[in-house]
Amino acid sequence: MSLVQMSRLSVTRLALHAQNHHLLLSSSVSPLITFKRTMLQDPYRRPGQPKENKFPWEKINFDLSKGLAGIKKHFALLKKEFADRWVGPEGKPIIEHLLEQNRVVWEFRGPESLEDWVVSSDREIGGHSEAYLKIGRNNNTCLLYGTLNSTPPRDGETRYSGYCTMKSKQQLSSFDRKKHFDWTSFNTLHLRVRGDGRPWMINIGFETYFSHQKDDLYSYFLYTRGGPYWQDVKIPFSKFFLTHRGRIQDDQHCLWLDKVNSIGFTLGDKADGPFQLEIDFIGVCKDYAHTEEFAYEVYKRNPEV
């Protein structure tokens, strides 16, 4: 082998060695630039379904008659808002607002009261549970019933299943602005229910400022006795703990009672079979005997020395 061939062979080996070294470094070192999509939490998508790549304006149904009806509706709501402001907070006189100790927020008096609620189950992700909502026999209560099934769907990805949920819709004011419940004058949630002995989870949704907090909820347990008798349940707001997608958070803080958006009931006790929960009303009250601010340990951001 000549000297020229030996030099060419050595140069080729050095080039291959440098290329392999570069590949090892690139595979071990993570990129410094991260795409924005990976930094945010995507909404849940059922396994096996393709992602919907549409612009927001492509989902709007442009209809002239529907638009005119919407404008008329929103201007009527705006007129009512201005009239209520002259009377007092939430359309009540200021003296009545200050002395109020009990308030019924949701009550079920006819089929039209069910329009403010949404019922869902794990059937949306391929599960086998069923949940339904209807008005009671005397048109004064609502009945949430169905069948719980914890068998996971056969999609190769979902490992756990078995839940049913009833959640109130987001209240909207004129021009689809979010309308919050202001419960700062109260400290206790008041329910009148009749269940079948199953434990439920009560979830309170509140307004958040950041996109990664959109799945935050305040939760607490509702234990039903079962049987034909009604039970009045009073749960202080200080007992509700912060959760994110069903996981209890370490950094706990009190519920913002002036930014409440919704309330929901979730069943997921892994006991397969039929269930039912009858609700008379959902309200809030002021319990002067309860003075606790928050029942759980919170982090001191500036601890005393």
Score class of each variant (00 low, 15 high):
249 Q>K: 11
137 R>G: 09
97 H>K: 11
273 G>F: 00
290 H>L: 05
132 Y>W: 05
68 L>Y: 02
167 K>Y: 00
260 V>C: 08
270 K>R: 15
5 Q>E: 12
206 F>Y: 02
287 D>F: 05
303 P>F: 08
94 I>T: 12
207 E>A: 15
62 F>S: 04
232 D>E: 11
11 V>S: 14
290 H>F: 03
64 L>H: 14
159 R>V: 12
197 G>K: 12
282 I>D: 01
95 I>W: 04
195 G>L: 08
22 H>I: 13
90 E>R: 11
198 R>L: 04
59 K>D: 13
295 A>G: 05
189 L>G: 03
284 V>N: 12
142 C>Q: 01
281 F>N: 09
59 K>R: 11
143 L>M: 12
298 V>G: 08
213 Q>F: 01
172 L>D: 10
33 I>A: 07
37 R>V: 05
274 P>Q: 05
30 S>M: 04
192 R>L: 15
104 V>R: 04
23 L>D: 11
220 Y>G: 09
134 K>I: 09
288 Y>A: 07
250 D>S: 15
277 L>Q: 01
14 L>S: 12
193 V>D: 02
93 P>A: 06
272 D>L: 11
202 I>V: 06
132 Y>H: 15
226 G>S: 03
52 E>Q: 13
137 R>I: 10
291 T>A: 02
196 D>Y: 00
202 I>S: 12
51 K>E: 12
163 Y>N: 07
155 D>W: 01
250 D>R: 15
102 N>R: 09
2 S>E: 04
121 S>L: 07
93 P>L: 14
238 S>W: 00
141 T>K: 05
147 T>K: 10
186 F>D: 05
232 D>A: 01
189 L>Y: 01
12 T>H: 02
289 A>T: 13
187 N>L: 08
291 T>K: 08
145 Y>Q: 09
61 N>F: 05
136 G>N: 06
85 R>P: 01
299 Y>H: 15
253 H>D: 11
216 D>A: 06
14 L>Q: 14
37 R>S: 07
